[in-house]
Design a binder for these strands. Structure first.
Lengths: 189, 189
DNA sequence: ATCGCTTTTTACCAATTGGTAAATATTTTC
DNA sequence: GAAAATATTTACCAATTGGTAAAAAGCGAT
């Protein structure tokens, strides 16, 4: 629980009562590698805070290829927040890439926190904004660089991820085939 | 002014007094093609609402190449809002790609609106969030598609932009050279 | 240890994209 | 309108990346 509290308090102040109220709503769950936290076509019913493990968001392009949109690791919220907030169907899958442990909030509890804890909406908005900006900053350089540069900046940005996730996911994140990525790895060493 | 008011009211309700207060702070300015609205290394001092014309945000990568990050056209706010909000130096240039006409708010006036008009902060947050999400949705497909597909989806998403902006900007937006884009255009017709 | 399954590597060749340079078209300026 | 500046197209060849297929390596279950 400490991880969650520390994370939240980076974005705003809350008193002990408020913190207890929030953490009282959280449930610890575990998901096995490959399991989906939320799925495209379904309305996300939970927000999760990652304690252990890695998730990826992925979708399918018009050729039917599976594209990894981004990765999330420890101390991040995992959800399509826009869709969760609006009770709308998600367009992407959130899949556990490793065995994972997380704290989850149901939509009902989350709304109750929003209606109870003054300032919670602002904290959530800040967190969400930060996540969006990070996504842009991580994805944008991928457009204008060659594949080797993209891979190098990937392992720079996610040094603790590269050994935990399949090469094929990294390749689809970088927009190349896994064969190309394998070749790039070989050339680097 | 009507364009600005219509745009704002999409995101929340305001009464006539509030609207007058906000529009009273706006100044109309014109920028010539090529002029910068804000520059990397400088603290953005204004927010602008585009009435006419197109802007692009661009930066330089580590090879010194100029990369067009995204385009903005009519009825959008032009600013690095995160940096504007925080009085921090911008990391990108906001450049007029055509002659442009816009309504601008100074930082001082903008803060005054925030402190005066109840609900303005929420409207701004919504607008900003929408812009961030749009940026992600437009940029993400650029990573995993080939150059022709990227160009086709660009002209689909920005049908009214393609004839107004130089090919070289589009090329750097798509992450290819202008020669490649020229060749792609030729193959398409 | 062995089998079956998945992941990663390698190889071959085709297709795409980049680099450089020059030719053509278009726009600006006087 | 002519000259200058800028933007776009074309061409050539090199480098990168993709497609397909097969081999090798890693992993889990029995």
């Amino acid at each position: 629980m400490k991880e969650l509290v520390d994370y939240i308090l980076q974005f705003g102040d809350l008193n002990k009562h408020q913190i207890d109220f929030i953490t009282g709503k959280a449930t610890m769950i575990e998901l096995q590698k490959g399991a989906y936290f939320s799925e495209a076509g379904k309305i996300p019913t939970q927000v999760g805070f990652i304690l252990e493990g890695v998730f990826r968001f992925c979708y399918y392009n018009n050729k039917g290829e599976e594209i990894t949109h981004f990765f999330l690791d420890e101390n991040n919220f995992v959800t399509d927040y826009q869709k969760f907030e609006a009770n709308a169907v998600a367009s992407e899958y959130a899949q556990a890439v490793t065995d994972t442990k997380l704290l989850v909030f149901s939509k009902k509890d989350w709304d109750e926190i929003l209606n109870t804890v003054i300032g919670w909406d602002k904290i959530v908005a800040k967190i969400y904004k930060k996540c969006l900006i990070e996504t842009i900053e991580r994805r944008s350089p991928l457009v204008s660089e060659d594949a080797t540069t993209r891979y190098l900046s990937f392992i720079e940005k996610f040094p603790n991820l590269v050994n935990r996730i399949p090469l094929s996911y990294v390749a689809s994140y970088l927009g190349i085939t896994q064969q190309s990525l394998s070749r790039i790895r070989k050339n680097i060493r």
